[in-house]
């Protein structure tokens, strides 16, 4: 069951993003909280659910397992999927720019 493109869940996006630097489970959750400035708080069930799924889809790999903890890293496939998603989100923001201006218009009037 490989990842076939398309919108990612928020959890998947942030985990891939955080794994641009190899990291392990517990630290990942803190990292995501920091990167999202406290906006994304991930439950451990979701974290490990996504990690398991992404591993199966070969978007991430375990780079180190010392028996105590596993260190994960994003793969090349994962990177390109993430970049594609980033572009998609960017386009969405671009397309929605009217909202930002409209917002400013409202504030100025």
């Amino acid at each position: 069951m490989a990842y076939s493109g398309g919108p990612m869940t928020e959890a998947m996006y942030y985990i891939l993003l955080a794994l641009m630097n190899p990291n392990y489970g517990y630290q990942l959750m803190n990292e995501i909280e920091q990167v999202s400035k406290g906006r994304v708080i991930m439950g451990p069930g979701t974290l490990y659910g996504v990690l398991t799924r992404l591993q199966k889809e070969r978007l991430i790999v375990v780079v180190n397992d010392d028996g105590r903890r596993k260190t994960y890293a994003i793969t090349q496939e994962g990177k390109s999927a993430l970049k594609e998603e980033y572009k998609r989100l960017e386009n969405m923001i671009q397309d929605g720019i009217i909202l930002k201006e409209g917002n400013e218009d409202e504030q100025s009037s």
């Binding site: 069951m1 991930m42 439950g43 451990p44 069930g45 979701t46 659910g49 996504v50 799924r53």
Partner: peptide, 16 residues
């Protein structure tokens, strides 16, 4: 304690 699952779509994948 925070919920184990914070993303319903990801949780649905765990049932696949």
């Amino acid at each position: 304690a925070p919920e184990l699952h914070t993303d319903t779509i990801e949780q649905s994948f765990t049932l696949d």
